[in-house]
Amino acid sequence: MSVFLRVKYLFAKSIFVFLSLVVASNSMATIDIYEFDDAKLSARFQQLTYTLRCPKCQNQNLADSNSTLSLDLKQIIYEKLKAGETDQQVLDFMKQRYGEFILFKPEMSRSNAFLWAGPVVFLVLFVVFFLRWYSNNREIEDE
């Protein structure tokens, strides 16, 4: 089975690659392990595997993990993307089976409001209080 891959980098380079590959290589059996024809799907796959956590590893995402469970889950993501599912559907699938733990990006839910809003609120309040302190206590001698 010979599969030919077109790398979408720059148009000129793509054409050059096409020609050079046809001419130079002896066999074209190299394939992506998770092979997509559409670069957008490939990008989504990468994104999803970075944002999902390996359930049994010590703090690794699916992309970087070689455990069998991670490989199985990546295969499932691959099949789902090819079948046309959305990112949210993939995330929901994982969450239903392994819980919120598997999401490296915490959901924007009410229970996580504190997490997402907290630091930003802190920053804003800090700056606001600081500016108020400054304008109230400002004592600069005239030069």
Binding site: T51, E100, F104, K105, P106, S111, L115
Partner: peptide, 10 residues
């Protein structure tokens, strides 16, 4: 009691 992950995306 809630198991959650906060990773690079956050």
């Amino acid at each position: 009691g809630k198991k959650i992950s906060v990773g690079a995306p956050y």
